[in-house]
């Protein structure tokens, strides 16, 4: 395991939707190590515990890391007040990311709400061979759709209320895609209920599947054991830790 910790300058800050922010930090030594699906652990002034946020994009050439987060509480609110040019104390890259198959494989990435950001870096790898199925509550919450389009991915955009893209859940779009033809892997991040639905479909169609999980964290590196989640091996239940063994797990290994 290899990660670094340091102060990194925010080189870009955007507001993507109400309460959703897009930061890029100049962090060459993190970018050198980072893989799709890993996360960074960010110190926020005035708070004891760091906040885990997924890596949305890695730019190895420019040595930058991009992450996108939503204000969910006091820590993320404070983080949203950090400005371009300010420094952020970041540890990373942490955890195990998504498996990246050869780029000619057909991958379906599924993201729900604030689970969409980590899927950008995954989809980038497959270009036109990626199908990106992303779902949001409503049109005003939609983020990152242009990013998937720009990399050539086949985009299936869903909103719960039908105000943008198709009306309905990502699982309905996933079923449609699975009916259309061969899929080599499904990779997903989003709310618990969504992941359950995605895994059920993956099983039904016999497609390998990976999911990214969330748990409250302390150390972020596997030392404090607070972020336990239930996993199975050879039919036996045991505990894994989201920060070190995950956040990405093979669907068949986790108990959702």
């Amino acid at each position: 395991m290899e990660y670094v910790q340091g102060e990194y300058r925010v080189v870009s800050k955007k507001n993507l939707a109400k309460n959703v922010f897009d930061f890029t930090i100049d962090a060459k030594n993190i970018a050198d190590l980072a893989l799709a699906g890993q996360f960074v652990h960010i110190k926020v002034d005035g708070f004891m515990l760091r906040r885990p946020i997924s890596i949305c994009e890695v730019d190895k050439e420019n040595g930058t890391i991009r992450f996108v987060f939503e204000i969910r509480g006091e820590g993320t609110e404070k983080l949203s007040q950090v400005n371009k040019g300010d420094n952020l104390d970041v540890m990373g890259p942490l955890g195990k990311g998504f498996t990246i198959l050869p780029e000619d494989k057909k991958a379906v990435v599924v993201g729900g709400g604030i689970g969409v950001p980590p899927m950008v870096e995954v989809a980038k790898n497959y270009g036109e061979n990626a199908t990106a199925i992303i779902g949001f509550r409503s049109a005003n919450a939609v983020i990152l759709d242009e990013d998937f389009k720009n990399m050539g991915a086949n985009l299936m955009l869903c909103t719960d209320d039908g105000t943008m893209g198709r009306k309905g859940f990502v699982t309905e779009a996933l079923k449609e895609r699975l009916e259309q033809g061969k899929v080599d892997i499904i990779q997903a991040c989003g709310p618990h209920m969504m992941l359950k639905g995605v895994v059920a479909l993956a099983n039904e169609y016999g497609v390998p599947c990976e999911v990214s999980l969330e748990e409250r964290m302390g150390c972020g590196v596997g030392a404090c054991l607070v972020c336990a989640c239930k996993t199975v091996k050879d039919g036996k239940e045991y505990l894994s830790h989201v920060c070190k063994d995950g956040p990405v797990f093979k669907a068949e290994d986790v108990i959702l």
């Binding site: 004891m48 515990l49 409250r216 302390g218 054991l225 607070v226 972020c227």
Partner: peptide, 23 residues
Amino acid sequence: QNGNPAPRVAETPSGMLNSVGLQ
């Protein structure tokens, strides 16, 4: 032993609670 179920950590003013339970 496995310890207690998650969540096992909560933030507090200038501190934290843990309930790992000796995993």
